[in-house]
Structure formats: structure tokens, C-alpha cells
Design a protein around this nucleic acid. Sequence first.
DNA 1: GCAAAAGTGTTAACTTTACACCCATGT
DNA 2: ACATGGGTGTAAAGTTAACACTTTTGC
Lengths: 231, 231
Amino acid sequence: MPIRKLPKLHSDFSVDCVIFGYDGEELKVLLIERNEEPFAKWMAIPGNLAQDNEDIDQAAARVLHDLTGLENVFMEQLQAFGAPNRHPQGRVITVAYYAIIKSSVNGLHPLSSFATKAVWWPANQLPELAFDHQQIVQAALKRLKNRIRYVPIGFELLPEKFSLTELQEIYEVILDKPIDKRNFRKKILSYGFLTELNQKQTGVSHRAARLYKFNQKQYEELKQNGFYFVP
Amino acid sequence: MPIRKLPKLHSDFSVDCVIFGYDGEELKVLLIERNEEPFAKWMAIPGNLAQDNEDIDQAAARVLHDLTGLENVFMEQLQAFGAPNRHPQGRVITVAYYAIIKSSVNGLHPLSSFATKAVWWPANQLPELAFDHQQIVQAALKRLKNRIRYVPIGFELLPEKFSLTELQEIYEVILDKPIDKRNFRKKILSYGFLTELNQKQTGVSHRAARLYKFNQKQYEELKQNGFYFVP
DNA sequence: GCAAAAGTGTTAACTTTACACCCATGT
DNA sequence: ACATGGGTGTAAAGTTAACACTTTTGC
């Protein structure tokens, strides 16, 4: 297609990932301690340079998988960050993603090459971070708070089976305000995308709560019909 | 800061801009005809490689300014697009923006170096476009439809002084559904960010409509107080 | 039996929707 | 005088918000 020889172009860019989790108490963000320059020993969100033949979404999925071993996780592009001096090695833009993962404590085998350790950190008291990662996490938090009102991502933070109280707590933590129990239950059940299970919590020293699970198929149907989720 | 010499990194990336306008009839998108390879003679959204020392938002503002002569326009990052083969010259990701400009017909001096001409095109019947620009425009349209419900960007498409009917038409065009006149007026006025002017339309062959303007300051105040715009 | 959380309905306030006619102006 | 769009209110339906007590279970 080119009529004359066109110059080769090439992007070095990175993909960074804000990974949210929930431990039943607080919203957490997964941070690594970098063991490479630049910013060796600093805390950072996990990220890496994209490979040349790799789709940008794939690169983000790879970063997440390397760190957590997880696949098929809710993940969405946040935006690109490109201040000219954000990276000491030159002009490197980054495309930030955020992911939401179930059961924030288990299943981390986080030692990709550039990280010495990975830690869950409370989302509202983060340490100083490498690069412009502070800015990225703040943008991801803002997006999460916004998105949770239109997309049922609360479920992504919970195990497959959960009680309504657990679900409510997630909304309270993310939206940072108390919610009336009766109103919450009425509304969330009225959508019809929760399946009531014949199971109850075990190992609690009080009345056991009934468990529910999220019915993705019913949710998709509702979405087709222009359904709008506003808990 | 580096303890040893780190390799230089460098991103070639482009910034592309979906520019929306409104001519009183339809939502329009500003397209250029490329006069350079790759994709010479193809229609495309305006864009350019970012300069090395340039912030990514600045680069987008520059692209818009080169094409339209406009500054201080509503503009927001959409997202990065980075399929590995989206650009024939190599791995070049692009960061897409969308802008909304007043008075879609005037004030274009669109001849930056890589474009032979610029044309307003109806947003819902676009021609074939260069690169992955079709995908980008579709994403921008989706974002616009969504954003107009929470952010008063309808005003950005109108001249400073406008009638309520003109404003309503914009919502109808973008949301693609009819709106009840009385309900629309009641609601939009109830927000209190429209200033009623002592002026009327001129040159119309029927009763002249009262003109209003958008009061940015009042809007900012409302936003402080957690106000949520849902027309 | 008591501590702890689960579970459950009703009412008032508010918001949204549906709907039709007279008014002002230019031709 | 007529054509064109401007401007206006009300009532019914639906949604949201506020609120407190009984039930189940483990210890």
C-alpha cells in the first residue's frame, strides 16, 4: 500500500494494572515492591512493557496473570497516562487498567521478575508510589466508584456464593456510605439476577445467612433490554 | 537515581481526535481526507504523532487546534487503542480523544499538512475510515451518549445563547429518542444552571424563543454538592 | 438465656411520566 | 387569518427513603 518507503515506527509503552480486592473489611489494592531500576524498592502497581506483537488488552491480562495466576478476571481499560517525564528512561506512555478480583487473600504467587513481593494495601491509605502510580490509582478508584453504580461489579469482589449482607457491605465500602438493609435487599432482589441457593453460611456464631449467586445469563438479558443498574 | 545505565525507551504513539459538532439537524463528526501514506486519500479522524516533549492531552489539543483554530474546547480522553497491527508502519498505539465544538460549520481552516480537506459527516452514516478509526468513532459515540447524561455537555454543541428547544433537540439527537417538551423544560430549569436572558431569537418566522445561557459557575457549585445531572 | 446478625412491610416524600391548549410572531 | 413553533400545569404512576421488631443460631 505505501507508494514510497515509509519509516518504521515503534512504541515502547507499558501497561499498568490497578488490582482491587476485598477482604471483608476494606477495599484493597495490590501493590508490588519493585526490585529493578528505575524506582527499585519503591512500591508500585504491577505493570510491564508491552510486547511488540501483543494486543494491549492481552498485555494487561498477562501482567495480571503473571502476578496472581488468575485468568478471566473483570478488567477494563482505565486510560492512558502520558506526561512527558513520567518515566526516567524516556518517553514511555502507559496504558492503565483496573481489575477486580475475588477473594483477595488467596492464590497469589506474585513473583514475576521485577517484583520482590506483592502486598494488599488499604485503598484509602496508600504509601508513596513509583512513577505516576499514585495518580493512576486515584483515577481507578474514581472509576470504580462510578462504575459500581451501573455495572454489577460488586460481585467480582466476592466468592461465588455470598450473603446479601456481604454484598451490601461491598457497596457501603466502595460508595463510602451506609445503606438501609431492607431497601438494599428489596432493590437488589427485584432485579432478578441473583439466584437464591438452598445453602446457608457455616461456621458463624449467629443465625446463618442464606447464600446467593450472581446469574450472569439473567443479567445479560436484562442488559439487552436497556436495564440500568443503580443500587 | 539509576544505579547502572538503563536503556533508553521511546514511544511513537499517535493522538487521534473524534470531533463532534451539531448543525441544528444532525450530530456530525469532522473527518479529513488524508494526503499522506499510509492510507492516502482515505477518510480518517484527525490525528498525529505526539511530539517527544509533549503531554498527551496537549498533543490532542494541538491536533484540534491545527485543524480548527479552536482552543479551550471540551475534550476528554477516550481510551488507548493498541491492536498490534493497527498501523502499517509498525507498533504504534494511539490515544483517542473526543471533543465537542460549538457551531459546527464556521471557523474551520482545516489544512494541516497531512489533510487535503476536512468535512463534517453525519455521525450515523460514516464512510469507510483509515486504520481502526471506525472503531474509535463508535467508541466515542457510545461515550458521548453516556456522558451527556451526567455532564452538561449538550451546551458545548450550541452557541453561547440558545433556546430551550435547541437544547432539547440536542438531547433528542444524541440520545436518539423524543423528549416531552414540558418535562424537559421543567427539569433543566430546576437545576438552576441556566441563566435566562432578556433576549429573544431574531429572524424566525414565528414567535421568537427566549434565549438562555449556561452558567458555568452555578454548575460548578452544584457539582461540589454531589449534584447529578440526569436530563 | 443471651449475644449477634438475619430477615421482613408499610407509609410518606419525592420523582417521573403523560398529556393539550393558548400565545406571539411573521407572512 | 393562518402557519409555525413558544410557552405553560396538573394528576396518576412509580420510585425512593425512612423506620423497628422478630427470628435463628452458637455459645
